[in-house]
Design a protein around this nucleic acid. Structure first.
Length: 430
RNA sequence: GCCGCCAUAACUCAGUUGGUAGAGUGGCUGGCUGUUAACCAGCAUGUCACAGGUUCGAGUCCUGUUGGCGGCGCCA
């Protein structure tokens, strides 16, 4: 019923075509007998000109009185005009105010993050946040498309769980009838159980971390893209991951080039991103750091500065494999030499870790031993350890942060702008 | 959890050695028939975050509190 602004701007309607648009006022200025209104819908922005003589006096008056973000239905004729931003405009023949918007609190560019976050329910209409949400939509649907095309089943693991996957200090606790329960921070253990029926599975779910993080890459609630594959070793999984990441980046850049550009990103880079991605081991990464003058002791995990420094040597995402066993989780497969078969994918330019994964340990005794070493009671992992008792197979899995991927693609300073309502240490409202 | 910074109009900020609270933006009123952050004229708007203290007098100095932001750690 409504024409879409994007279609009008693209020339789908010849000059003189009568169209009806529904949208919101981005700005409006009046020169007495002519009113210029910039109208927004979900597809774009277009200038509407309302002139005395073309419309009845009431409609001209209504156009003159439009304020920021009021909603209107406009009838008019398409016209090509070089004076209009975008090259085409609507010459109004009728205008109806649907929802008034007195004193809209967001205007211009000069607002502090605090104000915008308090007004998030309104700010999510902004051109920038809308662009990010479109990129995220492209990313999530490309993920599903890739998985479906490669023999994966989408599964729906639980969000409420009785205990954690790696340590208990970072879990949100909740009341579960008469007992304590926790919000999931990873679907991994459940995904591992699902490979025995489906072999290749993935899930896209919220994950929750109660860590009191104050950084530009952490959220307390984020969307976790996780996969688990039977009969798959670490290096086969890495082959797969670079395919997945390339496909998703290509698709997002193809569908959302204008949005990425608006946000200051480079769609051409993501359109042309292709495997293979560079791969180095932890040992090699340590040598890079030492050559760059970092005082870094073998055996420590990389911090933000180390990660950034290493990634500066590459212009593609970088896989770093085989970290020291001591700094990594109990379920990662022992590679011998005090290392595990794990992988981190680090985005270039300091965007940091986007994927963490590993081949999983299948040796029941080793698992129990590692759990005890980390101060955990193996009895609490009863059902998980059962998976090693009944028809265990080699398998690998990974977790990818949807918001981290979107942040990298959109070149955003802060991860909070990759999610409509960011939950952080100091904010869960609106 | 550790370290740092900030708080004055709806928004962004200025406010001198402590002496009557200011500007721009946005809003409202009027003018203008092609604006591109339109322009011109006028109008309205304050618990100076909160609580104490010093002082004849505190937006300004001191103490505490609260809220928020940034960096590190933790990770995706």
């Amino acid at each position: 019923m409504f024409a879409k602004i994007k279609d009008v701007l693209a020339g789908k309607y010849p000059d003189g075509t009568e169209v009806r648009l529904g949208g919101w006022v981005v700005k409006s200025r009046s020169s007495g007998k002519i009113v210029f209104t910039v109208l927004r819908d979900s597809t774009g922005e277009i200038q509407v000109t309302t002139k005395k003589g073309n419309v009845c006096d009431d409609a001209l008056k209504a156009a003159d009185a439009l304020t920021l973000e009021c909603s209107v239905v406009i009838d008019g004729k398409v016209r090509t005009d070089p004076r209009a931003p975008g090259g085409r405009e609507i010459v109004a023949t009728g205008l109806k105010l649907i929802g008034a918007s007195p004193d809209y609190p967001i205007f211009g560019e000069g607002h502090n993050p605090e104000v915008l976050l308090d007004l998030r329910h309104l700010h999510i209409r902004s051109k920038e946040l809308v662009a990010v949400m479109k990129v995220k939509d492209a990313v999530l649907s490309a993920c599903r498309e890739w998985f479906r095309g490669h023999g994966f089943y989408e599964v729906t693991p639980p969000i409420i769980m009785s205990s954690s996957c790696e340590g208990g200090s970072t879990l949100f606790e909740l009341k579960y009838f008469e007992e304590k329960a926790y919000l999931s921070q990873s679907a991994q253990l459940y995904l591992e159980s699902l490979i025995f029926g489906l072999e290749n599975v993935y899930s896209i779910t919220p994950s929750f971390r109660a860590e009191k993080s104050r950084t530009t890459r952490h959220l307390a609630e984020y969307w976790h893209i996780e996969g688990e594959m039977a009969w798959t070793g670490l290096y086969e999984m890495i082959d797969m991951l670079e395919q997945l990441v390339s496909f998703v980046c290509n698709k997002a850049a193809e569908q959302c080039a204008a949005e990425i550009r608006l946000l200051g990103g480079d769609p051409d880079y993501f359109l042309n991103l292709k495997p293979p991605f560079p791969r180095i081991t932890y040992d090699e990464a340590v040598k890079i750091l030492q050559a760059d003058g970092f005082e870094f002791r073998w055996g420590d995990d990389f911090g933000t500065h180390e990660e950034r420094q290493i990634s500066m040597h590459y212009d593609k995402p970088l896989f770093i494999t085989e970290y020291p066993l001591e700094v990594k989780a109990f379920y990662m497969k022992d590679a011998g030499n005090d290392k595990v078969l794990n992988v981190d994918m680090i985005a270039p330019k300091g965007f940091g870790e986007i994927i963490g994964g590993s081949e999983r340990e299948t040796d029941l005794r080793l698992l129990e031993e590692r759990l005890r070493k980390q101060g955990e009671d193996p009895a609490k992992y009863g059902w998980y350890l059962d998976l090693r008792r009944y028809g265990s197979v080699p398998h690998s899995g990974f977790g990818m942060g949807a918001e981290r991927l979107v942040r990298w693609i959109c070149n955003l300073e802060h991860i909070r702008d990759t999610i409509p309502y960011p939950r952080t240490i100091s904010r869960f409202n609106p």
